[in-house]
């Protein structure tokens, strides 16, 4: 296991500790890493510092309350927190509701397989590396697309992202969920 996988798997185990034991020490570490990033994301999306601070606290509180919703066979912790922060941004800055698809979740008795969890965390690492290796100009455009600074026509230019094999991994996780839900 490489260091980067170790970091991602550590966040996954922190989420389990928050979910199962309401572990404040694990939450404090998650907070120290992600809260400032969420705040920075919201500021780049147009929030002032005090609104961004308030929303980042709310996003982190949602991570605590919804820890049981996090599926480590489908996403990294960073990805899950990104989706919560993005939804908060739409809610608070745009004052819109964001329609969500029907949910696919594990039943109370089911847990994802550890091999699937490791696989998706490794895919996230590969994706992160692929983005890091892009030419600086393209990497900045992707950051802009996610921080809300791009027009639709500029976004259309960015769809040739190095998504690699993460989609097929997620697809596999969805198929297992469908099977488990029957």
């Amino acid at each position: 296991m490489k260091d980067e996988d170790g970091k991602r798997m550590l966040w996954v185990s922190h989420m389990a500790r928050i979910r199962d034991q309401q572990d404040q020490a694990a939450f404090a570490e998650l907070f120290d890493h992600f809260a400032p990033r969420v705040k920075g994301f919201l500021m780049k999306s147009g929030a002032n510092a005090s609104l961004a601070e308030e929303c980042a606290q709310e996003v982190m509180a949602t991570c605590w309350h919804k820890a049981h919703m996090f599926d480590p066979a489908r996403a990294s912790v960073a990805t899950w927190i990104f989706t919560i922060a993005r939804n908060r941004k739409i809610d608070v800055l745009r004052k819109e509701r964001r329609p969500e698809p029907e949910e696919l979740t594990w039943g109370p008795e089911e847990e994802p397989d550890q091999a699937d969890v490791l696989a998706i965390q490794q895919e996230s690492e590969l994706l992160g590396r692929a983005i890091a290796e892009l030419p600086a100009a393209q990497r900045e455009l992707i950051q802009k697309a996610y921080f809300g600074d791009l027009t639709q026509s500029e976004i259309a230019e960015q769809t040739g992202l190095p998504l690699g094999t993460i989609k097929s991994r997620i697809r596999l996780a969805l198929e297992r969920l469908r099977h488990a839900m029957k």
Binding site: R37, F82, S168
Partner: peptide, 24 residues
């Protein structure tokens, strides 16, 4: 799965974006 792959891009961007001194 494609949407969740693009979510994953968002996760990586969030994790690796320069912080520019922003702190809680």
């Amino acid at each position: 799965a494609q949407v969740e792959s693009y979510d994953a891009v968002g996760g990586e961007v969030l994790d690796n974006a320069p912080q520019n001194g922003v702190e809680m």
